Amino acid sequence: MRRQKSGVFFHSTQACFASLLLVFFAACGQEQTFTNPIRDGADPWVYQKDGSYYYSMSTGNGIAVSVSPKLTEQGTPVQVWKAPETGWNRASIWAPEIHFFDGHWYIYYAAGKEPGTPFIHQRSGVLKSVGPDPLGAYEDLGMLYTGDHYPDPQSIKWAIDLSPVTIQGQLYAVWSGWEDNQPTDKTPQHLYIAKMCNPETVCSNRVKLSSPDQPWETGGPLDLNEGPQVLSQDGETFIIYSTRESWLTEYRLGQLKLKEPGLDPLDPDNWVKSGPVFEGTEQVLGVGHCSFATSPDGSEHWLLYHSKKSAKPGWDRDIRLQPFSWDASGNPVFGVPVPAGMPLPLPSGETE
């Protein structure tokens, strides 16, 4: 259940946190500012490479990519792929992520063979750029394996939010999925991990890493874990994920941490859960589905996430950006969501 907070204390905490951010950046010579939200949309994804930020997003019934030197401005989206008229991925294109491996760009996304509810057909797929241009043509490489009887394609299970991650030099896929395919989308979601042999192939059975089993993950109409993103710092590995219902104000972030560097990430006992590590306030509602980047000069860590525009149930959301820090134990500290309209210093190295 959502914890109740004293209004006076809570607003004071928000104000103090935002003031500390301004003081910190002022001390670093940062004077130019921006305000949240930075744009409409949901499921924000950014990939940082060679001084540029690459953003991917659903657009119509396809996927668009944009390139920008700034974290606060995504640039002009260019549609790079349109869903086919028939097939498993013709509808409901969700949460695309763009990544770069071995001279090619890859886009990982979820889609279904039928539009609209119930969303029971969602599977994960991957696109590969034909050449080195992230805004150029992409080849559809098909559905990724997300089941329990590799490599039987008939055993593939419902899967969304798949993200490729490198842990200790090995490539893995992490995603949100169902234990079994069901005739209703009112089905609990769990976090899974599997080994990848290359950027276009999941080549092992899935392993369940997390279920919504903590008090701060439950209490609503549907328990879920989704949107996993790996965050690494000083040899430590974290999976930051979203929990509670995405269409409600209680949407928030939880954390899995690999207990020690070098442990096998495919062993669920090697991960420890904590949370919530980031949750909404009376002014910023339903925060979740994040991604991470550093400032243009590499000196700061930034959190990109979406939030609800109103308390009304639904998926009308906008995208926000704010810095985060690390504690003495090496854990990320995301702080409190900064209210809309409150000035934040531009990421270090970014100028208007």
Score class of each variant (00 low, 15 high):
147 G>F: 00
67 V>I: 08
109 Y>V: 14
21 L>H: 03
167 I>P: 04
49 K>N: 11
93 I>A: 01
133 D>A: 08
103 G>S: 06
348 S>C: 10
242 S>N: 11
238 F>H: 05
181 N>S: 02
302 W>S: 07
273 K>D: 01
308 K>R: 09
299 S>I: 09
57 M>R: 11
193 I>E: 00
234 D>K: 11
207 V>H: 11
242 S>V: 11
283 Q>P: 02
231 L>G: 14
250 E>A: 12
335 G>M: 01
291 S>M: 02
235 G>Q: 06
174 V>I: 12
251 Y>N: 00
131 G>M: 08
24 F>W: 06
255 Q>V: 04
133 D>F: 06
103 G>W: 02
153 P>K: 04
211 S>T: 14
200 E>F: 09
145 Y>M: 05
319 I>N: 07
122 Q>N: 12
28 C>V: 04
292 F>H: 00
146 T>K: 02
157 K>C: 12
101 F>E: 14
140 D>N: 15
316 D>F: 15
239 I>M: 11
51 G>Q: 02
214 Q>D: 08
99 H>E: 03
166 T>P: 00
77 P>H: 10
257 K>T: 09
231 L>A: 13
209 L>Y: 03
153 P>E: 04
142 G>P: 12
92 S>M: 12
340 A>F: 01
297 D>L: 08
333 V>R: 12
76 T>Q: 09
295 S>E: 01
161 D>T: 07
106 Y>T: 11
142 G>K: 14
111 A>E: 12
59 T>C: 02
79 Q>M: 03
10 F>H: 14
267 D>A: 15
3 R>N: 13
282 E>R: 12
255 Q>W: 03
178 W>V: 06
38 I>V: 08
242 S>C: 09
185 D>E: 05
292 F>V: 00
234 D>I: 05
254 G>V: 03
9 F>E: 15
162 L>C: 10
154 Q>P: 05
196 M>T: 00
288 G>F: 01
312 K>H: 03
237 T>W: 03
215 P>W: 08
253 L>Y: 00
190 H>A: 06
12 S>C: 15
168 Q>P: 02
43 D>G: 00
88 W>R: 10
144 L>D: 15
40 D>Y: 12
